[in-house]
Amino acid sequence: MKKDDIFEFYRRLAELNPDPETELEYGNVYQLLVAVTLSAQSTDVGVNKATKALFEKVKTPQDMLNLGHDALREHIKTIGLFNSKAKNVMAMAEILVRDFNGDVPADRDLLTTLPGVGRKTANVVMNCAFGAETFAVDTHIFRVGNRTGVAKGKTPLAVEKQLDKKTPHPFRVGSHHWMILHGRYICKARTPECWRCPVEDLCSYKSKSPAK
């Protein structure tokens, strides 16, 4: 996709949704970090259901330690991979209390040293909590980037680098939100709804879905 088309791509998505946000529900930076960690290979809806009661009790890493591993498992048992996620979240809380005075570091490299926190999770936290121009490439963004031609790449990191290179101001902070929402609700994996897509004319994908 050409430079002017990429600008127009984002402009249209921004016009429809001027203030895009993650669909994960949280009350502070620590809760965001926990929610994003739990969301790996799970839906935001499922995570929100599991964390609603959890976040009423847990607002800080120390709260998580006070809650304990078994109680955490009980709260998140409906989420995929809950056993390993519970271990990671507890280990993360211990490190945050011990090494960071209970605060979540505003540094992607430091975030990725925490148990269960990969580059994508760190990018989400940096973007949503600290307003950083990061691009968290999940399956939706990987698909949308390649399918539309906005950012092609064979790996999530390759797509991330293309997004970082090609996404213009003033769309850099909101970019990954617009793309994930577009992929979740319109540019779906199996049946993209091109008939109602606001950027269909800019996209390199040839629609196979019927008009409605």
Rank of each mutant, 00 (worst) to 15 (best):
R11W: 05
P20D: 02
L24M: 03
Y26F: 15
Y26N: 00
V34W: 04
V34Y: 13
T37K: 00
T37N: 10
Q41L: 09
G46M: 07
G46V: 02
G46R: 04
V47A: 12
K49N: 07
A50V: 06
L54W: 08
F55W: 11
K59P: 00
D63W: 14
M64I: 03
R73W: 00
I76M: 09
K77H: 14
K77L: 00
T78Q: 01
I79L: 10
L81C: 06
N83Q: 08
A86K: 10
M92R: 06
N101Y: 13
A106Q: 10
L111V: 15
L111E: 08
T112D: 00
P115G: 00
V117H: 10
T121I: 06
N127A: 08
C128S: 14
G131N: 09
G131F: 12
A132R: 15
A132C: 10
T134N: 02
T134L: 01
D138N: 11
T139M: 07
N146K: 11
N146M: 12
G149S: 10
V150W: 14
G153S: 06
K154S: 15
P156S: 11
L157M: 06
V159R: 13
K161L: 12
L163T: 07
K166M: 06
P168R: 14
H169Y: 14
H169D: 15
H169F: 14
F171W: 15
V173Y: 09
G174E: 08
G174Q: 10
G174V: 07
W178P: 02
M179T: 01
I180K: 02
L181V: 03
Y185G: 03
Y185F: 15
R190E: 11
E193T: 09
C197F: 05
V199Y: 03
Y205Q: 00
S207N: 05
S209N: 09
P210K: 02
